[in-house]
Design a protein around this nucleic acid. Sequence first.
RNA 1: GCCACCGUAGCUCAGCCGGUGGAGCGCCACCUUGGUAAGGUGGAGGUCGCGGGUUCGAUUCCCGCCGGUGGCUCCA
Length: 614
Amino acid sequence: MRVLFIHADYIEYEAREKALKNAEEIEKRKERCDECLVAFISVEEGDDGIAPRASKEIEEIAEKLNVERIVLYPYAHLSPKLASPDVAMKVLLNLESILGEKYEVCRAPFGWYKSFVISCKGHPLSELSKEIRAEGEEEEESEALKAEKKTTYWYIMTPDGELHDVSEFNYEKYPNLKKFVDYEISGTRAVTRIPPHVELMQKLELADYEPGSDSGNMRYYPKGKLVKRLIEEYVENRVLDYGAMEVETPIMYDYNHPSLKSYLNRFPARQYIVLSGKDKYFLRFAACFGQFLLMHDATFSYKQLPIRIYELAKYAFRREQKGELVGLRRLRAFTMPDMHTLAADMEQAKEEFRRQYEMAISVLKDFGLELGDYEVAIRFTRDFYEENREFINDLVRLVNRPVLIQMWDERFFYFVLKFEFNFVDAMNKAAALSTVQIDVENAQRYGITYYDEKGEKKNPYILHCSPSGAVERVMYAMLEKAYMDSQRGRKPMLPVWLSPTQVRIIPVKDEFMDYATAVMHDLADLGFRVDLDDRDLSVSRKIRDAEKEWIPYIVVIGEKEISEEILTVRIRGEGVKVMKMDEFLKILEEKVRGYPRAKLPLPALLSMRPKFRG
RNA sequence: GCCACCGUAGCUCAGCCGGUGGAGCGCCACCUUGGUAAGGUGGAGGUCGCGGGUUCGAUUCCCGCCGGUGGCUCCA
């Protein structure tokens, strides 16, 4: 709430005409008040419960000025983020009644165009403005947080189903789990350097900051765009194979939509707001809304369940705090594969949960991320655990390693069970990748129903699943992992199917260019991403550049290769090997089989490529 | 959002206590035709993040803003 205070000799105002359709009805159009404190007030978003606090602030000033009369004057122009009229009205009425106990209060009518004349006293304290923060809201939030902390229990569960105290567990064999636990519970951080993946995303010309946009909205260079698209395609294929139906839903939603509103209000507002004329919309922060609204209108029966729908939320928007944004790890606009499964009952929900858990493991594996690169967290309510011990144990047994468990006495969120796979990066920070949750709340909130055996309407359980997590975050994890590999003396690289250039051809002299070009075309025709370094540079220099690009296969072509019809291939991380073309093709084919394919994202001749970054 | 640090050529960075700026890489030209991580010579390129202030004079000092990074908070 923003308030402009004027200590006045008098104020006169007159309501002229309605500014809002639902302006309040008034009896007396004209008012005058002498020797008073006038408070021009803008009620802002989130001010719902602010009246008691605001009245204290106003009283304080009134006391200092020693006035008996207070004028509450609704004045919208102090703030760009006004509360809705009904909220503002409520707050003003509240203020009026609280202040009315001690002061004579005039309240100027709400929702009218008014003319006014004011005489300001002009002494040092006679004019001041104040921003009264909706601390009530913050308190509530921290109360909820405190409550969560009070009734949260942390354990490590071993594959035998045993729960161990987090502080007593022996982490010797699981250093990453230790890092993850520390990060989760105490939030330990002790590093001061640019995250490795940020330097890499720039150096490899994958992605970069875009200062022309809002922070946390990235640009992708051709190579980065390719990698991103391949990841998206891959996840999409997996989800469709799993049985999901792809849909597309809007990226913005009515701020005042009833079901959406109650969902939004459960959390501190972190939305991007879009104004369309006078109407307010928020940008989606996940694909949930669109899919829920869509399923609300669908008709289906228990025989069709489970039903799975999927969308690649490009983008999902979250206006994270400035200080939280980092490279590709935490963004304000990101790409989220989001699948929702409607399940008839808890048994079916559990069955799906388990299958999706396994799918997530397999998906990450194809990005080169293995158990141990990431740690498993499983979170649930105590009730759920009591009824499903064996089910939980089974999840831990499946990964065959200790898992972080968080258990709540009460349900704070919309889910009763959730898992995440948390990647532990080079700076010992953790970031969630895959996740699945069993939602027991939103089917009701959105009025999603199916017909059961008796023909009665029932709310299904809803599973939220992102088998990979945000696409940008997958890129982040791959780059961080590559960096950690290089620290251990291994050559950093992306999986071959994701490498922007899979094969680089380097002719030893200009005269071999025709032959080299022919080799390039042979490979390209088979769907591999091949390019050719035709620049006027030494062979070793070209090799160096290719290595810096993490190219998995470098083929040098000279006299020997041409006369003997062989290929000399420098395989990343393995060394130089001489082979026949068909042998090379076999190796390549094996590396990309089953993965999405795409064309080279840049001109095939290196001499034709711009430099996007240094 | 709060606190701290940083912002000099496309990139990475040097520039002491105020007197209008340098290197390497990259780019362009020429020479060089090369065999598995940098061949040589020359040239172009800068409102020193933006806006104010102090000063005869500011890249340098002060304030504000923007952007990046780290910490706190947060992470539906």
